[in-house]
């Protein structure tokens, strides 16, 4: 058995808070969960009697479904709460809503919120495990973990691997979680994007910053494309989507600069023809749909670790 401490997790708020051993233990556990997901009977009894509440105060389809599926595969009960249909739209504060939800005695609240820090706010105030499913431009730790899982599954040990992350680094919680996680596992990260999408101080993550896509992609083991968030700031930060595609989009020619075995990744949803060309998104090197598949296994590992850690606390172990 792995030293239990590496899997003890009272909340998952960000990959910034985890060390390499904790990340590795979660990825190892996710590999076992993936084996469950490939069986005919995709179910474990492990979290019977555990209630998982998904509290999504921002739109999401795949992350919410992925968490719900992960909880169900572990036999937990799930309840969903969507902002648009809830009392939040009637003026209730986040804390009041959360306290009402807490009165239903969930063991774990999975929260997505447009404000950075909302999961931390709840973790400090609620008596249940909090899992961050994306908070503003801060972190999206389970996306980071599933990206790390996918890379490790395909490439093995990530020490010394070159990972290019291209696009809107400034507003991407996916990029931030990956920057923390990849640095901890020893990968070299190269980011590139238009100046309007590169925040100052990126060097503190230990990554190399490029104004053009080519030097980031050259020789890379992984090319991760970020979504241009057209519903948010995206359209104000670039002159035109076509122009963005010309300079930063991943097409077959640009991908040739990377290693022949390089993985093409994207957290979804994709803007085909903007950050990624269809021939690359659907190409042999693309692992985009495997990222989605691995997301369920990774979230099972996270829910299990948080639930079992809190169970241990409850019995005073």
């Amino acid at each position: 058995m792995t030293a239990p401490s590496a899997l003890q997790l009272r909340h998952l708020l960000g990959l910034e808070d985890l060390n390499a051993d904790q990340i590795t233990a979660l990825l190892d556990l996710a590999a076992q969960m993936k084996a469950v997901n490939q069986r005919r009977i995709k179910k474990l009894p492990t979290l019977r009697g555990v209630t998982v509440l998904t509290f999504f105060v921002e739109n999401s389809t795949r992350t919410k479904m992925s968490f719900e599926l992960a909880a169900k595969r572990l036999s937990a009960d799930t309840m969903g709460f969507a902002a648009s249909t809830s009392s939040l739209s009637k003026g209730e504060t986040l804390l009041d809503t959360a306290r009402n939800l807490e009165a239903m005695a969930p063991d774990i609240v999975v929260i997505r919120h447009s404000s950075a820090g909302a999961p931390h706010f709840l973790a400090e105030r609620l008596n249940c495990g909090v899992v961050n499913a994306g908070d503003g431009a801060h972190e999206h730790p389970t996306q980071g973990l599933l990206d790390l899982y996918t890379m490790r599954e395909k490439l093995g040990d990530l020490t010394g691997k070159k990972v290019a992350i291209i696009g809107d680094i400034a507003h991407s919680r996916v990029a931030r979680s990956n920057l923390h996680g990849l640095a901890k596992l020893g990968a070299h990260v190269h980011v590139a994007g238009p100046a309007t999408m590169l925040p100052p101080g990126l060097e503190q993550f230990g990554c190399s910053v490029h104004a053009r896509a080519e030097p980031a992609i050259e020789g890379a083991d992984v090319v991760m494309m970020l979504r241009i968030q057209r519903e948010r700031q995206g359209n104000d930060l670039i002159p035109h989507a076509h122009e963005y595609h010309r300079f930063f989009g991943l097409d077959a020619a640009r991908l040739k600069l990377a290693q022949p075995h390089a993985l093409v990744m994207h957290p979804g949803p994709m803007n085909r023809g903007v950050e990624i060309a269809p021939e690359v998104a659907d190409g042999e090197q693309s692992v985009i749909l495997q990222q989605v598949e691995n997301g369920v296994a990774v979230r099972m590992a996270v829910l299990y670790a948080v639930a079992a850690t809190r169970g241990l606390d409850a019995v005073g172990g």
């Binding site: 058995m1 239990p4 469950v36 079992a308 169970g311 241990l312």
Partner: peptide, 27 residues
């Protein structure tokens, strides 16, 4: 057969990870 996720003492022992997985000759 790995039974670690089927045990009834998870709440007493906390999260753990098994050293080996289930490997069967078939269905």
């Amino acid at each position: 057969l790995d039974i670690s996720m089927y045990r009834d003492d998870m709440w007493l022992k906390g999260p753990r990870i098994a050293e080996g997985q289930t490997e069967l000759p078939g269905d």
